[in-house]
Design a protein around this nucleic acid. Sequence first.
DNA 1: CTGAAAGCGCTTACAG
DNA 2: CTGAAAGCGCTTACAG
Lengths: 377, 377
Amino acid sequence: MLTLPRLASEPDTACTPAAVGHRSAEQSHVTSRPRIKDVAALAGVAPSTVSAVLNDRNSPRAGAATRQRVLDAAKSLGYVPNEIARGLRTRRSMTVALISDVIATTPYAGQLIQGAQDAAWRAGYLLLLVNTGGDEALEERAIAALRQQQVGGALYATMYHRVVPVPTSLAGLPLVFLDARPADGSVPSVVPDEEAGARTAVHELARHGHRRIAFALDQREGPAATGRLAGYHSMMRDHGLPDDPALVVRARSDSSGGREAAHGLLALPQRPTAIFAFNDQMAIGVFHAAAERGLRIPEDLSVVGFDDLYVIGREMLPGLTTVALPHYAMGEVAVDLLLGVVEGDIGPDPVVRLVDCPLVERGSVGPVPLVVAEGAR
Amino acid sequence: MLTLPRLASEPDTACTPAAVGHRSAEQSHVTSRPRIKDVAALAGVAPSTVSAVLNDRNSPRAGAATRQRVLDAAKSLGYVPNEIARGLRTRRSMTVALISDVIATTPYAGQLIQGAQDAAWRAGYLLLLVNTGGDEALEERAIAALRQQQVGGALYATMYHRVVPVPTSLAGLPLVFLDARPADGSVPSVVPDEEAGARTAVHELARHGHRRIAFALDQREGPAATGRLAGYHSMMRDHGLPDDPALVVRARSDSSGGREAAHGLLALPQRPTAIFAFNDQMAIGVFHAAAERGLRIPEDLSVVGFDDLYVIGREMLPGLTTVALPHYAMGEVAVDLLLGVVEGDIGPDPVVRLVDCPLVERGSVGPVPLVVAEGAR
DNA sequence: CTGAAAGCGCTTACAG
DNA sequence: CTGAAAGCGCTTACAG
């Protein structure tokens, strides 16, 4: 237990019996840190001078000699300014919040949080985390608590890309939506570029020679399904590929949905030689269906997923080629955007920032199988 | 944008040109909230009375009438105390930190963070998150920043269960280790009960009649490997099962390691009818090996994993029966422990709190296959 | 170039 | 039962 020396200083204010009694009662296990007064006393200057030197304002406030004395004193005492006190005076706080519904329970959470954290940290901010589990009453109380803590702004993230109303309790706070789009378009948001990601997936298949490329997508509507479907169609068109309606099937967005969809697709008279799955979980189902039909991947069937869900793609046999949801980058971009408005550099312009979804090549894409290729032409 | 009325009050202090200029310059997008003075003015009492009423201290401080007036005034203004100012005065903060190396990049992170967050929230605390990526220099600076923010204590978590030194920069701060054990035993820690979890896995297999139960474990040493191996042996013994050294093999803790291990095990003259895999990733490898040998799960081979990695077990075919790492509960327990010492209820007793690892039954365990059962006896 | 004073928004003894 | 004063640890005009 490192205990920093408590310097004698203005005994009239600091060492009244009351103050001492208070400290010993409530601060028993907190080491008593030196304050600016202690540094000032040791350096033989006024607290205001210490403040000026340490904050390095209006450069030549202190002479070189004074400056050095202050710096030495601060160092020898291990002085670290109390950010709370400074925040009270300057009326700002070096914290920013990440509010989410249930995001922390998905494997994506980590990357998103990490990206946000890193970006905040780089700017000298600390990240306050609140998860509401989708409970609105709780959300409201949490936001109140955040305001009490004087957070400078907040990221509002949802578990998957969707459109949500702007919580009224957030009014007046600098805000950026993450993986969510505000229903009224009043708040800037950062979301994955679903359409471009789907184009990437289809292109990867097309460049391997596939022409009959199927798309097994989520039966639920939403920005992800809409965007990915648009990307699929547009890239099929760009490659001059047959945009056969039978090649697009909707199902539940898990492995059983993917499996059913794949069975239907693979039973088609002219079966697709490649399947683009809405997400990695559906891709797993495609793998299951292929195995059940004695089709090898990628020799007999190529597949591309979406999301790059942690470990899954890497541990499948063969590894799953997929398009990654850029959660780390999204977290970063969102915080940068937020700090821009918090620090007043930029106005709260309700932009929608699309983040690129990169391809992760593993082993599930191969050339068109000969026998099917002939039948399919 | 909700703008709360700024009440006229003691113009001598609050409305000097300096204060006003300051506010409009730096607070442009922050709604100006009412302060305790505003509530006091509206209720016609002194700020100290408002404070007393709102904090509900020494019960009958205020008479019922005054009390009601204050409450009404606070409500009508939408007054919310500034926690930063209160913290400065009371010398404590309602925040606690979660410091981790790279935990946020694993799919476990979410549950752990969620558990910690929920427990903190329940006690009125907010969670500050810091991820160091294992970078010691960054860790030190982050801890300094946390101290500046006056956090009341910290959870120090690692990505997987291991023994770590106590960072010197954390000295003096109330501390609890999470999924990590302090090298010098000086700090309380919360870790999964690896041994009991392994016993659970083996018992699940044994109760289905399996006798030759293999264990494919991580080749790296660590509390997880050691604990799970001990649990395996002890439960084999408890069931009076043959503890054949050939049944325990070590490999890399991913699917390729699990696959190799399973191939070796399945080639044994008396092959095991069940394999307990060190983790879910190795279990995936066991599935791959079984498929390659034409063995069906669970008809021909039963398998149990460990960790309950998000989605994996659920999306496999059949679903993987596994033992869950209780990350949510660990986060909760750790925060409760931490707040205990922060609030001084309990001393910083360096306990090791073991958290139970529950069985998650899915479809990968079945009865002993007849043909092998006969051969094996 | 440097110091004394005021004040950020609260709470806490201490008087009345 | 209630108010005036002091102070938490800083920073910020304002004087000198």
